[in-house]
């Protein structure tokens, strides 16, 4: 029954539609409007529920469009983890440092071996971007690494 991937997906979608519908019914009413803020969400929730039921009963694809090998999953997950780390450290360490580290580590993990070009490209790309944003365009990418810490010290005294 649940062998086909489409059916699994349709059940997830159905559950999502129900949660969305519940959230829609909880939206507060606004006394002045003719069509209130909850009208469209309710409609969309019902529509999604119907579509997911339709998907369930349609002659489904038995398999996903492509399958992943275990090692590939590992690579994807590690890149995911790296991006997550990048975001976490972005404002803390500042754009320059975080980006250079990220570029070096990611390229390395993806199997690029030429250290010289990794380092020169990472440095070049990051520094050029940084200077064109912060100085030419005056759009401020985070610059002071360990920023929060410094501010914290400066204002506690």
């Amino acid at each position: 029954m649940l062998k086909s991937i489409d059916r699994k997906v349709s059940i997830v979608l159905f559950v999502f539609a129900i949660i969305y519908l519940i959230a829609s019914y909880r939206l507060p009413a606004f006394s002045y409007s003719i069509v209130d803020a909850d009208a469209l969400p309710k409609g969309l929730g019902v529509l999604l529920a119907i579509l997911s039921v339709l998907l369930f009963f349609q002659s489904p694809h038995e398999k996903p469009a492509f399958k992943l090998k275990k090692e590939e999953v590992a690579i994807l997950l590690s890149v995911f983890g790296l991006i997550l780390g990048y975001i976490l450290l972005f404002e803390f360490l500042g754009f320059l440092l975080t980006t250079i580290i990220f570029l070096i580590v990611t390229s390395r993990i993806l199997g690029y071996t030429n250290w010289k070009s990794i380092i020169s490209v990472s440095l070049g790309f990051t520094v050029v971007l940084y200077f064109s944003f912060n100085y030419l365009l005056q759009i401020y990418l985070p610059q002071e690494y360990c920023h929060s810490r410094k501010e914290g010290l400066a204002w506690k005294h």
Partner: peptide, 26 residues
């Protein structure tokens, strides 16, 4: 897929950079 040595190296590099940056900044 990726070899462990390069991963380890990268890790050390990151830690070193982070520590030095924060240290100097503090």
């Amino acid at each position: 897929m990726f070899n462990k040595r390069s991963l380890l190296f990268s890790l050390v590099l990151v830690i070193a950079l982070v520590l030095s940056a924060c240290g100097s900044n503090q």
